[in-house]
Lab assay of single mutants.
Amino acid sequence: SDYEVNVNGIHHRFHNISEELIKFIEEALRRGEDLREIIKKVRELLG
């Protein structure tokens, strides 16, 4: 049904976003950045 496609589409989009965010955060932590600064950047990215 349309509803299922829609829900799956939304889930898929969020899954991709969270994968990208996790990579972004892991790389920043590897560079020794402060978690609070990383979260601030993530918030800015998400608008």
Results as ranks from 00 to 15, higher is better:
Asp34Arg: 09
Asn8Val: 01
Arg30Thr: 09
Arg43Gly: 12
Leu21Tyr: 05
Asp2Cys: 07
Asn6His: 08
Glu33Ala: 10
Val7Ala: 07
Gly47Asp: 10
Glu4Arg: 01
Arg13Phe: 15
Arg13Asn: 14
Leu46Gly: 09
Glu44Leu: 13
Ile22Pro: 00
Ala28Asn: 11
His11Tyr: 15
Arg36Glu: 07
Lys23Ala: 11
Lys40Ile: 13
Asn6Pro: 01
Ala28Gln: 15
Arg43Asn: 11
Asn16Leu: 05
Glu44Pro: 06
Gly9Cys: 02
Ala28Pro: 01
His11Ala: 10
Ile39Ser: 03
Lys41Ser: 11
Leu29Asn: 03
Ser1Pro: 04
Ile39Val: 11
Leu45Lys: 07
Asp34Pro: 13
Asn16Gly: 13
Ile38Arg: 01
Arg30Asn: 08
Leu46Ala: 09
Arg31Ser: 08
Val5Tyr: 02
Arg36Ile: 11
Ile39Glu: 04
Lys23Pro: 04
Ile10Tyr: 05
Phe14Val: 00
Leu29Phe: 10
Gly32Ile: 02
Val42Thr: 04
Val7Arg: 04
His11Phe: 14
Leu45Ala: 10
Val7Ser: 06
Gly9Asp: 05
Gly9Phe: 00
Glu4Met: 04
Leu45Tyr: 10
Glu26Asp: 12
Val7Cys: 05
Glu26Val: 14
Phe14Ile: 01
Glu20Ile: 08
His12Pro: 00
Leu29Asp: 02
Lys23Ile: 10
Arg43Cys: 03
Leu21Asp: 04
Lys40Thr: 13
Glu27Leu: 15
Arg43Gln: 08
Asn8Leu: 03
Arg36Tyr: 12
Glu20Ala: 12
Arg13Glu: 15
Arg13Met: 15
Leu29Ala: 05
Ile39Tyr: 06
Ala28Gly: 07
Gly9Lys: 01
Arg36Trp: 13
Ser1Gln: 12
Glu26Pro: 00
Asp2Ile: 06
Arg31His: 11
Gly47Val: 10
Lys40Met: 14
Glu33Leu: 15
Leu29Arg: 06
Ile22Cys: 01
Ser1Asp: 05
Arg36Cys: 08
Glu37Met: 12
Gly9Asn: 04
Leu35Ile: 12
Phe24Val: 08
Glu4Asn: 05
Asp2Asn: 05
Asn16Phe: 06
Ala28Glu: 13
Glu20Lys: 08
Asn8Pro: 02
His12Glu: 05
Ser18Tyr: 03
Ile17Val: 14
Arg36Met: 12
Lys40Trp: 15
Glu33Gly: 07
Arg36His: 09
Ile22Thr: 03
Glu37Leu: 14
Tyr3Val: 02
Glu37Tyr: 15
Leu46Cys: 05
Glu19Asp: 11
Arg31Gln: 15
Leu46Ile: 13
Ile39Thr: 04
Ala28Trp: 15
Ser18Ile: 03
Gly9Trp: 00
Arg30Leu: 10
Lys41Arg: 13
Ile39Asn: 02
Arg36Gln: 14
Glu37Ile: 13
Tyr3Ser: 01
Glu37Ala: 13
Gly47Pro: 10
Arg36Thr: 10
Ser18Glu: 03
Ile25Phe: 03
Gly47Gln: 13
Asn16Ala: 05
Gly32Pro: 04
His11Pro: 04
Ala28Arg: 11
His15Thr: 12
Glu20Arg: 10
Glu26Gly: 09
Leu29Gln: 04
Asn8Tyr: 00
Glu44Met: 13
Glu44Tyr: 15
Asn16Val: 02
Arg13Val: 15
His15Trp: 05
Asn8Ser: 06
Ile38Gln: 01
Val5Glu: 01
Val7Asn: 04
Glu44Gln: 13
Glu27Gln: 12
Gly32Val: 04
Ile17Phe: 02
Tyr3Met: 03
Glu33Thr: 12
Ile25Met: 03
Ile17Ala: 07
Glu4Lys: 02
Ser18Thr: 09
Lys23Leu: 11
Phe24Lys: 06
Glu27Thr: 14
Glu37Val: 13
Leu35Arg: 02
Glu33Asp: 12
Arg43Ser: 10
Ser1Val: 15
Arg43Lys: 08
Glu20Cys: 04
His12Trp: 08
Arg30Ala: 06
Glu26Ala: 12
Glu26Leu: 14
His12Ile: 14
Phe24Gly: 04
Tyr3Ile: 03
Glu20Asp: 13
Glu37Lys: 07
Arg13Cys: 05
Leu45Ser: 07
Glu4Leu: 05
His15Glu: 15
Phe24Glu: 06
Arg31Ala: 13
Phe14Met: 00
Ile10Pro: 01
Asp2Pro: 02
His12Thr: 04
Arg43Phe: 12
His12Ser: 02
Phe24Cys: 04
Ile10Ala: 08
Lys41Val: 10
Asn8Phe: 00
Arg30Trp: 15
Phe14Asn: 00
Gly32Phe: 07
Leu35Asp: 02
Leu45Asn: 07
Ile22Asn: 01
Ser18Phe: 03
Ile38Ala: 03
Glu27Asp: 13
His12Ala: 07
Val7Trp: 08
Leu45Gln: 10
Gly9Arg: 01
Lys23Cys: 03
Asn6Gln: 08
Glu27Trp: 15
Val7His: 08
Val5Met: 04
Leu21Asn: 06
Val5Lys: 01
Leu46Arg: 11
Leu35Val: 14
Glu27Tyr: 15
Leu46His: 09
Arg43Tyr: 15
Glu37Pro: 06
Glu27Phe: 15
Lys41Cys: 04
Arg30Ser: 10
Ile25Asp: 00
Ser18Leu: 03
Ser18Asn: 10
Lys23Glu: 12
Lys41Asp: 06
Arg30Pro: 02
Ile25Tyr: 01
Ala28Leu: 14
Leu35Pro: 09
Ser18Trp: 02
Asn6Cys: 04
Gly47Lys: 09
Arg31Val: 08
Lys41Ala: 12
Glu4Tyr: 03
Ile39Asp: 03
Leu21His: 06
Ile39Trp: 05
Val5Arg: 01
Glu33His: 12
Leu45Phe: 10
Glu33Cys: 07
Leu21Glu: 06
Leu45His: 08
Glu27Asn: 13
Glu33Asn: 11
Ile10Trp: 06
Leu29Met: 10
Asp2Thr: 04
His15Met: 08
Ile25Cys: 02
Leu29Pro: 00
Asp34Val: 07
Arg36Pro: 10
Arg31Pro: 01
Asn6Asp: 08
Val7Gln: 14
Glu37Asn: 11
His11Leu: 15
His15Asn: 11
His11Arg: 14
Val7Met: 07
His11Glu: 08
Leu45Val: 09
Glu19Gly: 09
Ile10His: 15
Gly47Met: 14
Arg31Asn: 11
Lys41Tyr: 15
Arg13Asp: 10
His11Gly: 03
Glu37Asp: 12
Glu44Gly: 08
Leu35Glu: 03
Phe14Asp: 00
Lys23Gly: 07
Lys40Phe: 15
Asn6Lys: 07
Ser18His: 05
Glu4Thr: 07
Lys23Phe: 13
Val5Asn: 01
Glu27Ala: 14
Val42Gln: 01
Val7Ile: 09
Glu33Met: 15
Ile17Arg: 00
Ala28Thr: 06
Gly9Pro: 00
Ile38Asn: 00
